[in-house]
Simulated scan of single mutants.
Amino acid sequence: MSFHASLGNLSLKQLRAFVCVAESRSFTSAATLLNLSQSAVSLLVRELESELGLKLLDRTTRSVRMTEAGAELHPVAARVLQDLGAAIAGSRELADRRRGRVRFACSPLQSSLLVPRLIGTFKARYPHITIVLRDTPGGEIIDLVASGEVDLALGVLPADTPFVAAEPLLTDDLLLIHPRSYGWGPRRRPTWKDIAAHPFIALGEHNSTRYLVDYHAAQVGVRLTPACEVAFVWTAIGMVDAGLGLSLIPGHARPIVQKFADVAMQPFEPQRIKRPIALMRHRQRTLSPAAEAFADFLRENFPRHDRRTPAARS
């Protein structure tokens, strides 16, 4: 006998009533468990039998027993109710932000300095939400958001980019690093001409910091010709530590620079250049409750920022 035909007008209430009666072997007990009247339970079972065209229960004044058809239906119906209950409970956990999975992208520098403690605090609040961190070069982050490969990303606020919505979270400055052997004291304020007069260690062409440096240097008529070009901030710091030149890097790299005794650092202030860091998401995709929770957490825990900061190209 098979119950894989059309479900017709079967209802969960009917299945639940049948399973409860079959397991308790009593309409009275089933009515108590379901918080229904005995007549209501009897009606639900009769409706189920009528819909299937089968007798499921043999009733006497003293007992209730499953028929052959009822015995075959019972484990299937019980499993359906159990699986559905688990699915509903899981959905409620997702809706209540008790569990889930968030795909998050940021630059390697941010993933090592800004993000780990934030994730630690978030996990303490939401222990069953998994963060899948993509530490990837800044030039690739917007593509990951636009393609839907990540739910959220942290990066330099882009110019008007289709499909990517960006919300500023903080504003970073530019940090000038140079060998201590240059002898520049803390009171000296290097200019663009000072930068151009020394070997310059540049970040890659697709790096947002490189774009800002080249743009603002050109604004004052200075063209920087890199002595070396590197992909990562750590490499630029290492080059400076080796005495190969100076560099301009993101301000939040200060904790790394402090570990290099032969590298001096100071804010580069001739034009008060700022890097707006933004939380990015796809414009046309709905965030999961877990991703919404992480986005809310980032908004709450990042420093206040100046929303008037103009956009920069990534």
Rank of each mutant, 00 (worst) to 15 (best):
L109I: 13
S314R: 06
Q271F: 11
T61F: 13
G155D: 06
L36E: 12
E292S: 11
G183C: 06
K274T: 09
S2G: 05
K123P: 01
L73M: 05
G183N: 07
E269D: 15
A236L: 06
G120R: 07
L10P: 01
S63W: 09
Q14H: 04
P162Q: 09
I142P: 00
Y215Q: 10
F260K: 04
D262S: 12
V145H: 03
R79M: 11
L54W: 12
V257A: 08
I131L: 12
R98S: 09
W234S: 15
A71P: 06
V164W: 02
R313Y: 08
M1C: 14
L244D: 01
G85C: 09
S37C: 10
I277F: 05
A105N: 15
L10W: 07
V257Y: 01
F297E: 10
L287D: 05
L118T: 03
R98V: 03
E140W: 04
D143Q: 13
A236S: 11
Q284G: 08
L287K: 00
W184C: 04
E23Y: 03
V240G: 00
M265D: 06
H128F: 14
V132C: 13
D194A: 03
G221P: 03
Q38G: 11
P190V: 03
T60A: 11
G155Y: 07
A165D: 12
R180Y: 10
R99T: 08
V233Q: 01
H216C: 01
P267M: 12
F302L: 13
G138E: 12
S314K: 04
C20F: 00
I201L: 02
E269H: 13
L52R: 07
R180L: 12
L7R: 13
Y211K: 00
E49L: 08
G243Q: 00
A159W: 14
S111W: 05
P310M: 05
S6T: 14
A217N: 00
H216F: 06
T161W: 11
C106A: 15
L114V: 10
Y215A: 09
V213H: 02
V257S: 05
P310N: 05
E47C: 07
A86E: 15
H4E: 09
V213Q: 01
Y126R: 13
R79G: 04
A197W: 02
W184A: 07
L144R: 07
I119F: 00
L118V: 05
K274H: 09
D160I: 14
